[in-house]
Design a protein around this nucleic acid. Structure first.
Lengths: 216, 216
DNA sequence: CGCGGTCTTCAGCTAGCGCTCAGGATCAGA
DNA sequence: TCTGATCCTGAGCGCTAGCTGAAGACCGCG
């Protein structure tokens, strides 16, 4: 991950957010040479278009010439119209300032997923989940999970150790707005049954708060 | 948590919702000085953009200059276009009014999680509380606390060394308006029983005034 | 159109939790 | 030492969160 953005606070906020997702971030505050960028061996570059000492589009062109690197642009409003010709130049996505950090995160994830550079298996204790492959195992034994159970388990594994409210699970795993706690309860129940055929309970209920996956 | 919102009912609703999530909320109904805000040592600020006597953006700029504080804006629809343009990014997230409370909660949680300020355990002496994980320990041993006891302990830890009146605890921990001192007494009693299985008394009664957690 | 698999809804049950109450202990002041 | 106020705490009760089996809704597929 390479990030080029001249405004300090903005850059820091984005860096923190990306690191939070487990990415390795190299930040530049001024126009770097293509060699500097490529030295970081990034999977993705996030470039501000307006840079002191250079132009994000020009940098992108040079990077693209060197190797196939997904690029997301950050642009000021008026820059869009003029230069969007540069979109043809191979931006995988772009955001118009101002944007919420959440928005950028979503785009970055999407681009990485699309370009197949987003990680494979994740694990917590003896539980391994490969969402891409649709496979989950515990202590080496495969778990026969339904799609929903797999997404649920994957989310729990990613957030292991944290209490996740049912509402949070509904929005994150199901994409629901409505709040029907029982849906979660039923799937947790089913997931536990399958998990616990291969070991002790690791998916704990925290009454009044939600659930927590305890890695061991 | 600092919340700046001039409409009383809206502010109260948000405050209650945030407190239910275990956050300590300081609310302002009119434009506060940056010093006032920072005095609350917040992990996050939720700012209305349109304020009597000032401008949420200006406040945000001052806060950001003083320290690295995540900020979520509440904006009226037309305000977005006009004003947010100049502001570029800087906001960790923003919501356009009207919005569902749940929506705000989700954003706040997301921002806190991302900025790593949630799940950071707080401690006083040998007592450690991780509200995000729903776990509290004393001298390394886990305390089996009910949700209410956990919230109570977390608040006490955050305000360690200060005398907290029962009324204050009721409003901050329970979100009550009514005043039934016995409710607090009963829960303090239960909390002490659990705390004191792993060490001496650290939760002192200050007769006529309230309680105080004495770290050591 | 029927079938298998999956997800959701429903309803009954259980147990933990928070609150109220009351009796006793403790404290401060006279 | 007496007295009233304050605080502590065990006991009990109602409520609700959570669990789960079963039935109904839904969906893709042949």
């Amino acid at each position: 991950m390479v990030l080029v953005e001249d405004e300090g606070p903005v850059r820091q906020a984005i860096e923190r957010a990306l690191r939070r997702e487990g990415m390795v971030v190299t930040g530049f505050s001024d126009y770097p040479g293509p060699d500097q960028v490529l030295a970081a061996a990034p999977d993705l570059a996030v470039l501000d278009v307006l840079l002191p000492g250079g132009d994000g589009f020009e940098l992108a062109r040079e990077l693209r010439a060197a190797r196939d690197l997904p690029i997301v642009f950050l642009t000021a409003r008026d820059a869009v119209e003029d230069r969007l010709g540069g979109f043809a130049l191979g931006a995988d996505d772009y955001l118009v300032k101002p944007f919420a950090l959440e928005e950028l995160m979503a785009r970055v994830r999407a681009v990485l997923r699309r370009t197949g550079r987003l990680g494979a298996a994740i694990e917590a204790g003896d539980v391994v989940v490969d969402e891409q492959a649709g496979i989950a195992t515990r202590a080496g034994s495969p778990l026969e999970l339904t799609p929903t159970e797999l997404r649920l388990l994957a989310y729990l594994v990613r957030q292991r150790g944290l209490v996740l409210s049912k509402h949070q699970l509904l929005t994150q795993v199901w994409g629901y707005d409505a709040y029907d706690p029982n849906v979660v309860e039923v799937h947790v129940s089913a997931l536990r049954r399958k998990l616990e055929t291969h070991g002790p309970r690791i998916l704990a209920t925290v009454r009044g708060l939600g659930y927590r996956l305890d890695p061991r």
